[in-house]
Amino acid sequence: MNTFLAIVLVVLMILVVVSLVRGIVAFLKSTKVDLESGEQVDATEMQLAQNRAMFARVKYQALAIAVVAIILAIAN
């Protein structure tokens, strides 16, 4: 059981890093577009992609914390 949970935890940590990188890339692209175009009234597609990536990161982090809590509960 611990081996399975450890594998799940590693997969979740990888997903956190991937979604973080995707969010940062979207942030950099949206910043570049904002600088080139001037003022922005609505949220751009890149900003929406950034929000989706960061929300995914938060979900994966919450799941990883839950897995760690389960591992600690089983260890006691």
Rank of each mutant, 00 (worst) to 15 (best):
M46T: 10
V8C: 12
V33K: 07
G23Q: 05
K32F: 07
S30W: 12
T31Q: 11
V11M: 04
V17H: 02
A43M: 14
V18S: 00
F27T: 14
V11K: 11
E36V: 06
L12M: 01
L28V: 14
F27I: 06
D42H: 14
V41A: 08
A43H: 14
S37F: 07
S30Q: 13
I14P: 00
V41L: 13
L35C: 05
V18E: 07
V21R: 00
A26N: 04
V8H: 04
A26F: 06
V21L: 11
V18N: 02
D42G: 10
V8Y: 02
T44D: 10
V33T: 12
V25G: 00
F27P: 01
V10Q: 04
A43Q: 15
T31N: 12
Q40A: 14
V33R: 02
K29Y: 01
S30T: 14
I14Q: 04
Q40G: 11
R22D: 03
F27L: 14
L35N: 15
V25L: 05
L28N: 07
V11C: 02
G38Y: 08
T31K: 11
E36W: 05
D34Y: 05
E36S: 13
E36L: 11
S19L: 02
S30I: 06
G38W: 09
V10E: 15
G23M: 10
V18Q: 05
L15A: 10
K32V: 11
V21P: 00
V41W: 10
V25T: 02
E36C: 05
T31S: 12
D34L: 08
M46R: 05
E36F: 10
V21W: 05
G38H: 09
I24E: 09
